[in-house]
Design a protein around this nucleic acid. Structure first.
Lengths: 341, 341
DNA sequence: CTGTTAGCGCGTTCAC
DNA sequence: GTGAACGCGCTAACAG
């Protein structure tokens, strides 16, 4: 069934039939009805999206890349929130979201899919390579959660300042011995993070948050997690709390990590916040504790997604949108207190 | 940049250049190198997916619909697991996943996207309408989590039997007064579920699980939640536990609901499982409790997704795959015990 | 308001 | 092993 066949049956030209479907051009009601009736008779269900997208040079699809597998990415509500925001804005624009991961087996889909634009979230080590591929294909791209590059705007929060604010609260409470649990900093999964390693790292989320921490606690120990999960937080938390120079406060770079640190502390018989202060980052709804409300910095996950989607839409239309930095909001919580005497 | 331009630069015909890229036909190494070199020079990055998909009649994209918004759907790990399974199998097949929701504003994307197939998950009241639209467009479809229809295979677990098994365990422990918290049963959001209402309901997940429950506890009270969340579980749980005929056991139709029921019980000063037995459904990793391990029925979420994806791929290839029913596995947990004397 | 004309960029017959 | 020609189904100009 083609538009041509419908037009023939309706006794009109294809272009008229096309206009009848798109509703864009001036078509008399009578003609439109004739066309629609013919379509109905023939079981024609509207223009073929493939042909339409070839003709228009648009597919109505925007890719969204998340790190790792779908299941790992969506274990973190931050990613879910961002995808939700992207889907919302794109849906309103009549576009669809092609969900992609940076897993090797998804590479072929990434390379061959018809996309009008791309939202690259995360700071996967593959980002540079993927960006290069997108550049060659002239696919407008927005980075979500990493720093802008020439010609590629980014949407993010000010991770450095936000973390600095959290650290400063701890300092103001009297903490001198603070440590931090960072998100993965390099592909190698190095655990003990030195300033030298940080210097070599890019402008990623983990690096910026670490800089914010170190700007307040320049000698604070930093251990990197391999993933943003409660389990990893607990593992690294135990490592930190077992040290002879046990910290009195821990800045975790995500709420999930922070929840793990709290759990590690309680496992060792330490009370939070009396014996140990813990802060997180993200402001997700943690169902892990009922007894604590995590002190953290809430980032606008959905807004990040929405803004990224709007930005990529503008890019697709040929605009030159600028990078956007969104604000975080301090969530007081109940997991910080002055250090034990 | 078109393939034709590359061919011209390389001094070969377009068809030869096409073969050089796809690697399908017989092309001498020398020729292929010439073509690739020309492409590199001109900054050509491979065939245009839009044109390719028109020509081949395939877009390499399979739609996956989840209920509600992305954020609501992915609050439930079951949906995340299913999408992960779908993405994994489709990725291996070189196909991409177009993430769609049944939200009204996403309807245009649903209708206009170029898709080779569709995985419709959930039992949204819109399913019938969406199925009809897909049928007219000749888009092969697989249902995930609802009953097969003529020409539309389904992938699911045996919800009735699985719930029956859970209920039977409770009965065997001596429970006579059991209640159930169901997933949403109708669009109206009716709270008190009568057998008459169930008779009118379709063959959905909620209905099947309820049938399994009633087959063991024919007079058990059934209240429907409006969503599968801990909060809803807690709300309905409180309603159940406040009744004069307070149940000694609750069968919740999802783990999230079950977690809410446990929380409601504890809020009322009831100990689980001493005062109240609770079972869930799904087998997700609940971080809500540390003191309990939920007694539940684990369903293979990722396998459901993988199987659905394999089924839709077979459908796309013109096969006639059958519906698949996967097995659940009982998870003993620590939230059931004999009823209090 | 309607019809005619021309591709969009590619893959795939066929001949050679 | 390679090339020429055709059409996938549609829409955007333009002409009437």
């Amino acid at each position: 069934m083609t538009l041509a066949a419908v037009a023939r049956t309706a006794g009109v030209s294809v272009s008229t039939a096309s206009l009848a479907f798109s509703g864009l051009g001036p078509v008399s009601d009578a003609t439109r009805d004739k066309v629609l009736a013919a379509a109905d008779t023939l079981g024609y269900s509207g223009p073929d999206p493939r042909a339409r997208s070839l003709r228009q040079g648009r597919s109505g699809v925007v890719g969204m890349l998340v790190e790792n597998s779908v299941i790992r990415a969506f274990r973190d509500p931050v990613n879910v929130g961002m995808v939700d925001g992207v889907a919302e804005v794109l849906g309103d624009a009549g576009a669809g979201v092609l969900l992609l991961t940076d897993a090797p087996h998804a590479r072929s889909a990434f390379d061959n899919a018809a996309m009008d634009g791309m939202v690259l979230s995360g700071c996967s080590p593959l980002v540079a390579e993927l960006l290069e591929s997108l550049r060659r294909r002239h696919i407008p791209t927005v980075l979500l959660g990493s720093r802008a590059r020439p010609g590629v705007p980014a949407v993010d929060v000010d991770n450095l300042t936000a973390t600095e604010q959290l650290a400063r609260r701890l300092a103001e409470l009297g903490h001198r011995q603070a440590a931090t649990v960072t998100l993965p900093l390099d592909a190698a999964g190095t655990q003990f993070v030195s300033p030298a390693l940080l210097a070599g790292a890019g402008g990623d989320t983990a690096a910026d948050r670490l800089r914010g921490f170190w700007s307040v606690f320049p000698t604070g120990v930093a251990l990197a997690a391999t993933d943003s999960t409660v389990e990893e937080g607990e593992r690294i938390g135990r490592l930190l709390l077992d040290r002879v120079d046990r910290p009195t406060a821990v800045v975790a770079q995500s709420d999930l990590l922070a929840a793990g640190v709290v759990r590690a502390a309680e496992g060792l018989g330490l009370a939070v916040p009396t014996d140990l202060s813990v802060v997180g980052f993200d402001g997700i709804e943690l169902q892990t504790f009922t007894s604590h409300a995590l002190t953290t910095m809430r980032q606008p996950m959905q807004d990040k997604g929405r803004t990224a989607a709007r930005t990529v839409l503008r890019l697709i239309e040929g605009g030159r949108p600028r990078s956007v930095t969104l604000d975080c909001e301090f969530v007081p919580g109940t997991t910080i207190a002055p250090p034990p005497p």
